[in-house]
Amino acid sequence: MTSIAEIPPVVQSARAHGLKAVFQHARYVMRENPVTGFAFLMFLFFVLCATIGPWLVPHDPLASNTAQALKPPSALNWFGTDQLGRDIFSRVVVAARLDLAIAISSVLLVFAFGGLSGVAAGYFGGWTDRIVGRICDTIMAFPLFVLAMGIVAALGNTVTNIVIATAIINYPLYARLARSEANVRRDAGFVHAARLSGNSEGRILLMHILPNILPIMMVQVSLTMGYAILNAAGLSFIGLGVRPPTPEWGIMVAEGASFIVSGEWWIAFFPGLTLMLAVFCFNLLGDGLRDIVDPQRRT
C-alpha cells in the first residue's frame, strides 16, 4: 500500500531522472560529435558579443575618422577601417546584437504564428487545416526571396519589416511541421487521457500537444535563425537593408563588396566571415539539436 505522501518524491525523482537523462544524452552527443560542441561554444560567444560587446569594443562604432579611412588591419584597428575611417572590429562586434535580434525575433514570430496555426490545423483538421494548407501553398509558390523583397519594399525598410518579411517566408516550414506532428499525436494516449479528465479542446492543444512537439520545433528554430541573417544580408545587397549608420553584418558585407576589386578586402571580409560563422553555427547547432531531440532521426 502506498500512502499519498509517498508519491511526490517518486515523481520528482522521475523528473530529475528525465532531466538528467536529457543532460546526459546531450553530453553524449557533444562528446560523440565535437562539431556540435564547437557550434555550441560559438553560439555562446555570439550571445556574449551581443550582450556585453558594446561595452568592450575599443572604438566608437559610429565615429568616423576620415584621416584614418580605408586602413588595413593593424594593432590599432584589428579589422581595419572602412571608407569613413570607422573601426570595423567595433562595428562587427556591436552588430551582433542587431543581427541576433533580427534572427531571434523573426523566429519567435514565426514560431508563435506558424506553430500555433499548424498545431491547430493538425489537431482539428477540416476547415482549419484547409485554410492553413492553402496559406502555406500560396507562400511556397512564391519565389521566397522576391516575396521578402516585395514586403520590405512595400512596407518600408525598417528592422521591424525585415523581421516580418523573414517570418512570413518561413511560415510554411513551421506550420507544416507543427501540423504533421500534431496530426500524429491527436489520437495518442496522453491526448485521450487529457480529454477524459475533462480538459477543453483548446487546453489540450496548448497544454498537452504543443509542449510535446516543442523539441522538434526547436531544431527548426536553429536552422531558420541562420537563414534570417542571410536573408537580411541579401536585402541589404539590393539596398533594402537597415538604416545607416547602424552596423549590421549584411549591410557591411554588401557595402564592402564593391571595395574587393580595388584591394580593400578587409571591409567585406571580416563582417562576411563573422556572418558566415554565425550562420554556420546556427546550422550546425540545428543538426546537433536534432540529434539530441530525436536520436532515431539522426542525419
Partner: peptide, 20 residues
C-alpha cells in the same frame, strides 16, 4: 564530419558575396 562542415559552410555565406 568534413562533409557536414563543408556543405554547411557553403550554405552559410550570402550568395552575392560568394559570387563577387
Amino acid at each position: 564530419h568534413f562533409t557536414r562542415i563543408f556543405t554547411t559552410a557553403g550554405v552559410s555565406l550570402p550568395v552575392f558575396f560568394t559570387g563577387l
